Amino acid sequence: MTDTTLQVRAVTPDDFDAWLPLWDGYNRFYGRFDATALPEHITRTTWSRFFDGYEPMHAFIAEHGGRVLGLVHFIYHRNTILEGPICYLQDLFTVEDSRGQGVGRALIEAVYAHAKASNSSRVYWHTHETNHTAMRLYDDVAVKPGFVMYRKDV
């Protein structure tokens, strides 16, 4: 596959059936939920946010030959040390047989371009420390600032 044949674009409402298997695959990859999928109402809420002009949430897909190979979701939010919004790349997933072929890189680059056009000077994300395959790409397209994430579900 060459970069010229890969298309990255914003999702449309008609993309739901093609997007859903990748969304489910992403959630399984990170072990977010048991053998069943994420509750349908959460998936539907997430999907609807991509089309709500009041939500700062966006989604792109990568396609090749009519097949959806990857997805990326990103969110803009305020920051205390920058004037413009910053962009959190929340979810990135590619189908297994397309990994290492530039799909993830193309999705990240599309987020970078959207962020720049949206007056955002920073894109950041997290990944699990065991996601070594993805980190090879991330080390090539971004810097690792050394911060450790802490969280507590409340």
Rank of each mutant, 00 (worst) to 15 (best):
H41D: 15
K152I: 15
Y112I: 04
G25R: 07
V8S: 05
P85W: 13
V143E: 13
K144M: 12
E109V: 05
E83D: 11
R67A: 15
R67P: 09
Q90E: 08
M135S: 05
T133G: 08
H64A: 15
Q90P: 02
P21M: 14
R78D: 14
L69E: 13
E63T: 15
A134V: 11
G100L: 13
A113T: 01
D52M: 04
G146D: 04
V11P: 02
M57F: 04
T2H: 15
G65F: 01
A37V: 12
T4Y: 02
F74W: 15
G65C: 02
Y76L: 06
V111H: 01
W47H: 06
D17Y: 02
A113D: 06
M135G: 03
E109F: 01
D140N: 12
H132V: 10
E83L: 12
R32E: 03
W19M: 03
R105T: 06
E96L: 13
Y150S: 11
G66T: 13
T127S: 12
H64L: 15
W23E: 06
D52V: 03
K116I: 09
H41N: 15
T46H: 12
S120H: 05
L22I: 00
S98Y: 10
T130G: 12
Y138T: 08
Y138V: 10
V11S: 02
S48T: 08
D139I: 02
V8G: 09
P39F: 10
Y76G: 01
K152E: 13
H58C: 12
G104H: 06
V111M: 00
S120R: 01
G100W: 12
S118N: 12
D139Y: 07
L107P: 08
R78P: 06
G53W: 00
D15C: 13
F33W: 11
Y54G: 01
D140L: 11
Q7H: 08
D17I: 00
D15P: 07
P21Y: 14
R122E: 15
S48L: 01
W47L: 00
K152C: 12
Y150T: 13
R136K: 14
Q101I: 04
G65M: 07
E83N: 11
V111T: 00
L107G: 09
L82W: 09
F93G: 07
A10W: 10
E63M: 14
R67W: 08
W23P: 02
H126Y: 14
W47E: 01
F51Y: 05
D14C: 03
A10Q: 09
D15L: 11
F93N: 07
G84L: 09
R151P: 04
K144N: 15
M1C: 14
T36D: 10
G100Q: 14
I61K: 05
H41T: 14
R44K: 07
V72S: 11
G31H: 08
V72Y: 00
E40F: 00
F74E: 06
D3L: 11
F60G: 00
T12M: 03
C87A: 02
V154N: 08
H132D: 10
F60A: 00
F33M: 00
M1R: 12
G84T: 09
R9N: 01
E129H: 10
F60V: 01
N79E: 06
A113R: 05
Q101E: 06
V111E: 00
V72F: 04
L89H: 03
G25N: 04
A110M: 05
A18I: 05
Y54V: 00
D34I: 08
F60C: 00
V141S: 03
A142Y: 07
Y76E: 04
F147H: 08
N131L: 07
P21T: 10
D34Y: 04
D15T: 07
M1S: 12
